[in-house]
């Protein structure tokens, strides 16, 4: 899923300081699972904003709503009839949802309420870790199912570097060395000989390097 983290409340308050009618808009997908932008977090942020308005003696109307998804026009249409009552929206969706909402409601300021962090998984409640950088050309078949692009701090294709110590990365003793994980996994798969295969230069044109990306699927297009 797309993992997001809360933005500092001060940053959100600063964005909203000139607005009087605000919609806090959550998303029921990834950001709900990672507890950053679902119905519960919408309620918490809305309450905090109301308290802040009272403290500052301002009259501000703050409504709450959580859509099924903000990355889908069908669901964003649900606010078409009510959007005019607001002069700003705080979207607690990922960066995709914030932008998609802004595209639908062109003359309405849509502020981000979370920091979108990475594509990751839930390790345990309250702990999420990165697994994928969506480089557009998956090499997991050759690296024992562990991604050096997302998980090696130097994204080495022929790692590890000389800084790998007792299974940890040189940048931080809390971070696993991706290449230690790859070696361990190749061993478990009885494929350690594959370690010596040279990984060729990567074609980054499917990554950010190639500019904004697009997937067109003729087989599913209507």
């Amino acid at each position: 899923m797309i993992v997001a983290d809360k933005k500092p409340i001060e940053e959100i308050i600063e964005c909203l300081k000139d607005h009087k009618n605000i919609l806090v808009l959550g998303c029921n997908e990834c950001v709900t699972v990672c507890e950053a932008g679902g119905k519960k977090e919408v309620g918490v942020l809305a309450s905090a904003l109301r308290m802040n308005a009272r403290k500052e003696g301002k009259e501000v109307k703050i409504d709450e709503l959580t859509l099924e998804r903000q990355c889908d026009r069908e669901y964003l249409d649900e606010i078409r009839d009510s959007i005019d009552q607001y002069d700003a929206v705080v979207s607690l969706a990922c960066g995709v949802g914030v932008q998609f909402t802004a595209e639908q409601y062109h003359d309405k300021p849509i502020y981000p309420g979370v920091n979108t962090t990475f594509l990751g998984a839930t390790e345990e409640r309250g702990v999420w870790t990165e697994r994928c950088q969506a480089c557009g050309q998956c090499i997991l078949a050759t690296t024992g199912g562990i991604c050096p692009v997302a998980r090696c701090a130097k994204r080495l294709f022929n790692g590890p570097c000389g800084g790998s110590t007792t299974g940890k990365c040189e940048i931080n003793a809390e971070v696993d060395c991706a290449w230690q994980l790859i070696v361990d996994r190749l061993k478990a798969l009885e494929r350690l000989d594959d370690y010596e295969k040279l990984c060729p230069l990567k074609d980054w044109s499917t990554d950010r390097a190639g500019g904004p990306r697009k997937v067109v699927r003729e087989d599913v297009k209507q």
Partner: peptide
């Protein structure tokens, strides 16, 4: 001297 030690010779071979 870096880890994993077992791939340090294979890494040179690479």
């Amino acid at each position: 001297f870096a880890d994993p030690f077992e791939i340090r010779v294979p890494r040179l071979a690479k």
